[in-house]
């Protein structure tokens, strides 16, 4: 099926994902409504004719990747999604990807990341709540030991253990069944590596 240029522009216009085309100096040549909608909170007095001040504010990391890879064609930063907060008060987030389509022509993809960030936040809160539940029981167990009540302490330790096991069960179920390989034993002091988008 032949697709005309106007069909492509129509797609570009209606695409729910933000798209911004710029030249090498980040002067905007095309921008769709989704990009204007998502970037509006960081524009201030800028008119979006120049993406440079927006990137400086939003994602210096992406900007330095662009500078570093000034001649590379294809995805910038190995296609990494750069997450940026557009308004801390409203908790609005975007993800940015950049692709050098051809020399002197860049395409920026702007994704609405509110939902993903909200899910991450909820996961963290849930993990904290479970951790708190475990700690409360263990602290009560310590107190019971200190008071010379080992039976009571043992009950409380069991309760902490049950809360921990329930949490691990939930997590394994979400990871797709009893995927024991998902769990890696590590030293408590060892930091968990930050997840990096492929």
């Amino acid at each position: 099926m032949a697709v005309s240029y106007s069909d492509l522009l129509q797609f570009f216009y209606q695409c729910p994902v933000g798209l911004v085309e710029t030249d090498e100096a980040a002067h905007v040549t095309l921008v769709n409504p989704a990009a204007a909608r998502l970037l509006a909170p960081v524009l201030g007095n800028d008119d979006l004719s120049d993406l440079l001040p927006v990137l400086e504010r939003l994602s210096p990391e992406l900007l330095s990747a662009l500078t570093r890879e000034r001649t590379a064609l294809g995805p910038i930063g190995a296609g990494r999604r750069f997450t940026a907060c557009t308004n801390a008060e409203q908790a609005t987030w975007v993800e940015l990807l950049a692709v050098r389509v051809e020399p002197g022509r860049l395409m920026f993809v702007v994704l609405d990341a509110d939902r993903e960030q909200e899910l991450v936040r909820r996961e963290r809160v849930r993990a904290l709540e479970v951790n708190d539940q475990i700690v409360q029981s263990l602290v009560a167990a310590e107190t019971a030991f200190g008071l010379g009540r080992p039976d009571r302490a043992a009950e409380l330790v069991s309760s902490a253990s049950a809360a921990g096991r329930r949490w691990i069960g939930e997590q394994l179920a979400q990871a797709g069944g009893a995927a024991a390989g998902v769990v890696r034993r590590r030293d408590a002091a060892e930091p968990v590596a930050e997840a990096v988008e492929p």
Binding site: N32, A35, L43
Partner: peptide, 8 residues
Amino acid sequence: VFTFRMSP
């Protein structure tokens, strides 16, 4: 910023 005819 509006995006008339895809221009800012």
